[in-house]
Nucleic acid binder design. Sequence first.
DNA 1: TGGCTATGATTGACGCGTCAATGAAATGAG
DNA 2: CTCATTTCATTGACGCGTCAATCATAGCCA
Lengths: 172, 172
Amino acid sequence: MSGGERPGGAVARRRMTSAELSIWRSLVDTTTELRRLLGAQLSQDSNLSPADYQVLLALSEAEGRRMRSSVLAATIDWERSRLSHHLARMERRGLIRRDDCATDNRGAEVFLTDEGTDAFRGATLPHTRAIKRHFADALTSEQFDALDGILRSLRDHLHPEQVEAPKREGRR
Amino acid sequence: MSGGERPGGAVARRRMTSAELSIWRSLVDTTTELRRLLGAQLSQDSNLSPADYQVLLALSEAEGRRMRSSVLAATIDWERSRLSHHLARMERRGLIRRDDCATDNRGAEVFLTDEGTDAFRGATLPHTRAIKRHFADALTSEQFDALDGILRSLRDHLHPEQVEAPKREGRR
DNA sequence: TGGCTATGATTGACGCGTCAATGAAATGAG
DNA sequence: CTCATTTCATTGACGCGTCAATCATAGCCA
């Protein structure tokens, strides 16, 4: 209630308070710690890094478990070269493989091996449980609603153009 | 009030919903993006990485701008070896230096050089402004309150023992 | 004292991520 | 068709972070 702020607008406000700064630091510290913990758990349970998991997740949801490398990069919002390096490491471990692309001779197509599929399947359940235990179990449903709104505000502020595309599929 | 959840307790709840999972992913993605952005800004404005900034901040607040290496590691919650590597790189760049410790011949003492002090001073204002612009300006004061509570819940859940050190300043 | 263990700090190996450079194929203008 | 430009993907160099190993010293106890 009350205060003089507007959430969405491109407004110049008062100075940032030290409370706000310290909430920022706490956000960084807490998410860092959560990621460390969940990453360690994942790697211990399944010998996968969070980055591996992200790649496997995207591939396992793709048509035919295969994707153009550039599409994959866009999907998980990685730089191309990062993906290239990472795919090279994953290929060495037998989790994925790369083929030349049929329709564009520059392109590469990445696909899950059976081993990669199994690794992902085996990782999913314990990883989800760990997220529940360390994150979801800590919050009430009111807090989830609030957090959802906060994240939406942050995203809208970061990407002012594409605010509030309702619930549409496919197009961009 | 209302729902069936208890925030603090070590309670086993229902299955995690997909909405909760997707809020988790959004939290990871959004904080990652914010950190990338602020890190890029910092490095562009001041030629410092966020890690450099963390070290410089801790040192600049220390008695005499110097600290035992192990104390520094504990202060910013880094592994010793990470700190060692990072200090070596910062020393090469002239931001800090290391001395043998007077009271413990195993120990090292780290201190800010004048150059490091200047670099930190020059970085602080633009960095704080960037945090304000990209983070603080996106949220209402109600959202800050909610976020503060959420982070407290998460931290309490991660560290069940040291719950609820009240709100006093300075000592702990 | 001698010897065991614990601690402070560093190192090397290796996986990871960014940036700038490369090469190769598609695309488009003339 | 030819040349310039853009796009796809990879590579190398280098900074970063983790893990396991190392080494010296401190602390302890018999």
